[in-house]
Design a protein around this nucleic acid. Structure first.
Lengths: 145, 145
DNA sequence: TATTGTTATACTCTATAACTATA
DNA sequence: TATAGTTATAGAGTATAACAATA
């Protein structure tokens, strides 16, 4: 397989996707963090930083912004006074759902310009993309997501 | 097709790809701009801004940074004194090649963790990804890239 | 007047380093 | 001492608004 070809194709895809983002959207990391919290439940701040691949100060600040916006809640850990446990709120789940729907809409517009064969090829690649991103998460965190 | 599934798979891919980027790397827009200049030859600053989907001031500043780094050259247009024509330099092409190779390397490591079926599915999706990004570019610029 | 590009300014997101609080 | 998290500070990259130069 020509990895340079695949790498540039993926890179173009990433740029396209990034341009789907509008100014009011949640940032990529913000959305990914909310998605993690929704899928896996409350997590410590440090765990989130590792999971999302940002530094601890960056996660502190992201969580502060999300908290300010009412999308997450922060709770003390009764067993360890240093620990902050972060959980998604109802409003956070709603924001995530709205973002997903809106991005799916925009993606639908793009996909409508493709022929059936191309659409089928993209759909067929979804499990592989999942496996790829899963492989990285496992590698980084040392445990399945 | 389930567009929300595809949209989230692409979103995870975007985050994965962003994390492939190291601090010294060219930014995504910088790399895309250099790739455009290499593929299509010198272009006006405004054309580049439209092509890459950023504002004109953002492109002015990006080109300034790239120029500072010796990766592009700026030339006046003899026919129109307002116009700046931007071209890639030898050093720019080399930087682009190095980045491609390094990202392909990192991608190769990730792909090595997948099974043959997943790798084949990704390879099969490359033409569809090309078509998708092409469709967007054509739509935005009003002409084939 | 319209177009091309720049400058001024501000905001988001990120990083590293220094710090506080708890274990 | 080590760990969890915060605060301080700086830099990249983006946007909008106001501007200068040329057509």
């Amino acid at each position: 397989m020509d990895f340079i070809e695949l790498a540039s194709a993926l890179e173009r895809l990433v740029r396209l996707f990034r341009q789907l983002t509008t100014a009011r959207d949640l940032s990529l990391t913000a959305a990914a963090t909310l998605a993690t919290l929704e899928r896996d439940g409350p997590r410590r701040l440090t765990e989130l930083a590792v999971q999302e691949g940002v530094t601890q100060p960056a996660m502190t600040q992201l969580v502060a912004r999300l908290h300010e916006a009412g999308l997450v809640e922060r709770a003390a850990d009764p067993a360890d006074g240093r620990v902050v446990r972060v959980g998604i709120t109802e409003a956070g789940s709603e924001a995530l759902a709205a973002r997903r729907a809106s991005r799916a809409d925009r993606l639908t517009v793009l996909l409508s310009r493709l022929d059936d064969e191309d659409r089928a090829a993209l759909a067929a690649a979804v499990p592989a993309i999942d496996a790829l991103t899963e492989a990285v998460t496992v590698h980084r965190t040392g445990a399945p997501a």
